[in-house]
Design a protein around this nucleic acid. Sequence first.
DNA 1: CATTTTTGCTTAAACGGTTAACCATCTTAA
DNA 2: TTAAGATGGTTAACCGTTTAAGCAAAAATG
Lengths: 344, 344
Amino acid sequence: MAQKKKVLLKDIALKAGVSVALVSYVLNGKGRKNRVRKEKADSIIAIAKAMNYQPNHLAKSLRSGKSFTIGLVIADISNPFFANIARIVENQARLHGYTVIYGSSDEDATKSMDLINVLINRRVDGFIIVSTEKSEKQLEYLRSQHILFVLLDRYFPAIKTDVVSTNHYQAAYDSGMHLARMGYSRIGLIAYKSQMFHMKERVRGYRDALRKNGLPFRKKWLQEVNFLTAKAEVEKAIDTMRSPGFAVDAVIFSTYSLAVYGLKYINRMGIQVPEELAIVSFGQAEVFDLYACPVTYVMQDMDTLGKTAVDILVSKMDNPKQKVQRVLLEAQLVKRRSSAKKIS
Amino acid sequence: MAQKKKVLLKDIALKAGVSVALVSYVLNGKGRKNRVRKEKADSIIAIAKAMNYQPNHLAKSLRSGKSFTIGLVIADISNPFFANIARIVENQARLHGYTVIYGSSDEDATKSMDLINVLINRRVDGFIIVSTEKSEKQLEYLRSQHILFVLLDRYFPAIKTDVVSTNHYQAAYDSGMHLARMGYSRIGLIAYKSQMFHMKERVRGYRDALRKNGLPFRKKWLQEVNFLTAKAEVEKAIDTMRSPGFAVDAVIFSTYSLAVYGLKYINRMGIQVPEELAIVSFGQAEVFDLYACPVTYVMQDMDTLGKTAVDILVSKMDNPKQKVQRVLLEAQLVKRRSSAKKIS
DNA sequence: CATTTTTGCTTAAACGGTTAACCATCTTAA
DNA sequence: TTAAGATGGTTAACCGTTTAAGCAAAAATG
């Protein structure tokens, strides 16, 4: 019935009456290069197929020093943005003959480092990394070990690395401009308290948009919450922003998860969107389409993001001394009713 | 600065003045068993630490025949249900010292088989599989090769395999019962056209609930749509179900993706939920909380689902002749306004 | 004191491939 | 006729571990 033992190169060689080396050459397409007679090559291939030969990737990788594996380090696979990215990376990698091993870092630099080490030990050929705060050292480490990596979505402007990201500044700026144009003049932003560049950029874009429109800014309108206690803090932030006297009429959520917390709270409080509070959000998910009032959101080009990251990494693997690439994609603002023209 | 070359067992052995074998024994905790002197063992460990030794997992796996890797085959990582499952499996596997390699099958048996083969070649120690239609052969194949696997969420009742799943029949039955109890009497179901057992079970549960309540059933109320053209078919299905004369007053979506298509269409058509149409859905996501009218849904115990699958697989690896386990979890119906008591 | 056991460590053969180097034989060119 | 080149293969080292088997010296036993 089914073969009990794995079939090896040796078995094929035996049946074909040739050496193991020859079989290896032929099955790796190096037959011509190594002057193997056409008929012999064909017969070897036929035998391999007949015996259903499956190469042992571990042995291959060990000897050749190449595992055809990419390590993907993301914040959290259960976040739809990253799940989608993972999906795209997976497909694109397979297209290049690579397999992906991913892991979630939970925005924790230590976890991220652990993960990276596990993957290094598994001899991945390179990494695609969504960086966390305080992870600059990891990148230095990787570079010192000559391990290739491409940063995705987030990066450190001071460190010269390959990166594929969205122009977070522009996205936030556009969001602010859009709200201003729609007649909102007291605009708040809820962000994570973070030193990460992409977060800072979003804040900067927001502030520049206010400035550009001559809109007032108040400290209480810029709420930065901690990652681990985000839910409660978002709720408090919304309360604070809406305090009588300096209540906002619009808010930008700088992240998908913040938006989810926020929207739930807004529902619970019975706040009318956009009449009482207009909304624009980063991130991207079915939620925004199906929310009571469809939500205006920043649409990132996830497809290009993921594919480009893989492509850069793969081409870097083929030619490691290629020069550093920084791809910055523009985001599109998808305008919905949650930021409809203000009626007042 | 940083070491250029990877440090090997050989390097440690050299520095410690012992053989490579001894180092291997010690670092694998087999020092005592192999009668290594305590002080020597300690010094070896110290040296290894000082040199920041990182074992080559490929070599380890090749030699020992164990890769400490689990293959996870799911339908689509960008579906929140599977993304969450992936997350849980990842964590639980790491707890046992395993790494996860996942891949999406897109509900396609061929893709699933390809994926499984890639992972076999990478010498995963076992699989956790969310089966697709017509994939029975794959399972036979795996078994014939003595490759361990556990089925997750879906299974084939005729094939005796380890499985962790939800009681889909009960979940659907409960959904129907709930709607009936809330006063709905013309209940429809939108499902995928599939021979998969879990889908059939959902249909069976739905029909039994109708029967139990003496409610009428009409062919047009049971709509089965094709996977690849689901969006358009769901919309047509809703139209059909609401045709004058035998319009439903409630509908059960048997899947997250079907619900998303359906809800979008319901929004577009301006159908009032639950006044004109009550809704219960399978799947689980933020969407259901944030939808204009919070949606009643079947809550599966994803945590137990994922963890148990890993646990069974790992214990099976330790002892392959363990007897087959079938874990069937009960689902909880989370009741929301979308299925509120009918007013008529 | 001679023998057996225990202790502590080394040797060397795997694991399943890849690949540089080598060796015949047969053509071709001078 | 003969040296050089082309053709079609084989040999064997190597990738970095694990682990069974072996071996000498020290300790225990009778």
